[in-house]
Amino acid sequence: MRPFVPLVAVLVFGCVLNANGAFFEWQTHRAVLREISVGGILASGMTVVIVSGGIDLAVGSVLALSAVSFAWLTLLHGLPGFFALPLVLLVGAAAGALSGVLVAWPRMQPFIVTLAMMVFARGLAKELSGGQKISTYVQDPSGAFRSVPLPAVFEALDGRVLGGNVSVVTLVFLGSAFVTWVILERLRVGRYLFAVGGNFEAARLSGVPVHFTLIFAYVLSGICAALAGICQAAQETHGDPETGLGYELDAIAMVVLGGTSLMGGRGGVALTVIGALTLGYLEKVLSLNAYSSELRLMLTGVILVLAVLFQRRFGRESA
């Protein structure tokens, strides 16, 4: 029940400061669920990496690289969505695999490896896009601009289903969280991940394929980052090489707020969903009331610390 306490506290906070009743309207909650989706997809992958005892700082940049790649394929080269989607997921998987291999064999620090990948992927995104957004207004090699229609896949991803009540990206988020849950809780590789994160040497000696497990974690995080990038591009209607700056920190905050241990070996993705909701609602309450950005930053910092402190104090397993 513990992870729910900060969330409930934030919801109560929202009911009190309801901005003339805006907090009680469904569109506000629909908006929160949409706004946390990109961060939540990143956090799903991040949970797996953190459970394995690592960290993935590259997700924000891989998100940008994927958004640019997706826009480059669909807008600039007119590739249909069903073809571009798997290609972009492959880009994310490749970036993750590269980080994973460097963490697994030379046993480099995940912090350093993914920091390097973060810088590299950002550079690649800028190179691919020429430093500009790739939008529906594309430049031909001759230098002339022409408008292309927004592909259906963009409209579909930024659309809503179930009578306009749920954003499609929210479903993508819940889907990634569910897949991650199955991996961590129901598959053998999930047990390996917890084992490797808990004690690498012990896991290796008891026959866990430690290298494969580590690479698996970073590949999954890369795929999640690519998926988040596709959602970001669809929502912005272009591929922006500067997008997703600092998103890795939001994703880490969502994971930690849920109660997953940064030391590895303990946690779960259900907790991450709660963490994402807590952060999303906190932002929404502060935004609805149009508090100044200075106050918002300070309040967010204070509430994050209080939430984690609370979990440690009342938790059976301290985070």
């Binding site: 569109q27 970001q232 935004s287 609805l288 100044s292």
Partner: peptide
């Protein structure tokens, strides 16, 4: 009726505008 700092960023502007529309 509503002012907010979106730090020049499009995703932030969209979030803030959603709040303005709700309120």
């Amino acid at each position: 009726v509503f002012e907010a700092d979106m730090a020049w960023l499009e995703p932030n502007a969209r979030k803030e505008m959603e709040s303005a529309l709700a309120a």
